[in-house]
Nucleic acid binder design. Structure first.
Lengths: 197, 197
DNA sequence: CGATTCTTTGAAAACAGTCAATCTGTGTGG
DNA sequence: CCACACAGATTGACTGTTTTCAAAGAATCG
């Protein structure tokens, strides 16, 4: 199970065997059944989890009971409420599994240790953070500048691995559209792109 | 002019006098007239600028010529296209001054030097980055979950120092609304909140 | 003052959301 | 293996919101 994370660390961060071994010792495996929570609102996000297999979502429930999906995660993504993870404060978000999933979890203390003692790890994390920053920028740009149809097309292009894996109404939530609107947008889109009507 | 940055560094990062002196030596002052560019699309963002005085905006021009404002900056904020600054690649964005402004600029080389040699500086930057992350999260949440009116109220609450300082149509651009809509929303809002109609 | 920028307003059209009903596929328990 | 429940997707009719276009009114600046 650690092989998957090891391969990732080599590819993304060029870690050495010794470093891999160290990290391997610090991770805790966890299985989640579909619908099971990884984190619930009000609890502190004490871990950062590498997704070996499966699919998760991080979302917020607003006062009127609506769910707003902030992020998805699939294989080779990290999942955590970083705000709570870094601050130690209770999370506003929920994280649950959309499929049966396998994770490798690193707790805050060990994460901090790795950041201090393994420069390659730190470099990798910094690189990921920069990527993340760019992703946020382009999501915000999409939010403020695109029509429903463009948002949908953009989503498919940006997250091809996700859009055919999660329910459509969750994509709608992620994009800030109603499921009905997304359903219609998508139908028009299929017609336009010459898919067998 | 450096006093303003010095005070900031002491407050936010607890920097010592020696460190302040070092940073002072590495900054370059710059004055911008209203409407003047700090950065134009296609150029690399080689500097990070501390705003001593004035007000700037970072925005993107889409294919159809529309301007989409990604961020504002006022006194004691930093301004740069961080994506380009960190990657060294040409920027997609423009930055210009909304008022006559005074900046203190640090170039990439000196910034990297500070990050490596002044732990307090690095700590401060990391803290700011975490803040920034949270701000992005809540902006995205606002984008996908709020009505035009809520977005406007939220903006006023979040950026009281900005909303009464920049033109309304720029707030509209920042929020992803048309200026007409924002104008109407605001008028209803004023009526609702008992302002002398 | 004259020019420019910014804001507001009105009317029409486009767009997206809501409500309600139906349809589909999946999986579970009897 | 079937029947049923359930989650998800679609559709139609309607409502409400937002945009667009056009024009006019304020405010600001040189």
């Amino acid at each position: 199970m650690f092989d998957s994370l090891a391969a990732y660390l080599v590819e993304k961060g060029g870690l050495t065997n010794d470093e891999l071994k160290l990290i391997g010792d610090l991770t805790v495996p966890k299985r989640l059944r579909k619908r099971q929570y990884l984190l619930q609102e009000g609890n502190v996000s004490n871990y950062i989890s590498f997704i070996v297999k499966g699919c998760l979502r991080l979302y917020l429930v607003s006062k009127d009971g609506q769910e707003h999906i902030m992020r998805f995660g699939v294989e080779n993504w990290w999942m955590s409420d970083y705000e709570s993870f870094h601050s130690g404060l209770p999370s506003k978000y929920n994280i649950d599994a959309l499929e049966d999933s396998e994770l490798l979890m690193i707790d805050k203390k060990n994460y901090d240790l790795l950041m201090e003692t393994v420069p390659d790890f730190k470099r990798m994390v910094d690189k990921l953070a920069a990527r993340n920053y760019e992703a946020h920028q382009s999501r915000i740009l999409s939010n403020i500048s695109e029509t429903a149809e463009e948002k949908y097309e953009n989503f498919i292009k940006t997250y091809p691995a996700i859009f055919d894996r999660v329910p459509l109404h969750m994509v709608a939530s992620f994009l800030g559209l109603s499921r009905e609107t997304l359903s219609r947008v998508r139908q028009q889109n299929a017609r336009k792109h010459g898919n067998n009507s």
